[in-house]
């Protein structure tokens, strides 16, 4: 049962990693526009509008 010494912290840290990822995605506004995000995913990169192609700045928050 010594294996628990590795497995339990491993399981917990994986879980925390998931939680961290969720909180990060929430903070960066990825849940603000669920309809639009679905379409952004299938947009071809070479057809990106100039604004989206040039700029890597974080998105402004749309109220």
């Amino acid at each position: 049962m010594e294996v628990l010494v590795y497995l339990v912290p491993l399981a917990l840290s994986l879980g925390l990693l998931g939680l961290g990822a969720f909180l990060w995605s929430l903070k960066t506004g990825q849940y603000d526009d669920l309809d639009g995000a679905a379409w952004r995913a299938i947009m071809d990169d070479d057809q990106l509008p100039p604004a989206a192609a040039q700029k890597k700045a974080p998105p402004p928050q749309t109220p």
């Binding site: 057809q47 509008p49 100039p50 604004a51 040039q54 700029k55 749309t62």
Partner: peptide
């Protein structure tokens, strides 16, 4: 995409982001 592209092409605009869910643009 049309709106974001069209607004992004304006001089000095640093970001244009449309929200399809709420029907708004920032």
């Amino acid at each position: 995409f049309e709106i974001e592209g069209g607004l992004g092409a304006l001089p000095n605009v640093t970001n244009a982001r449309a929200n399809l869910t709420s029907g708004r643009v920032a």
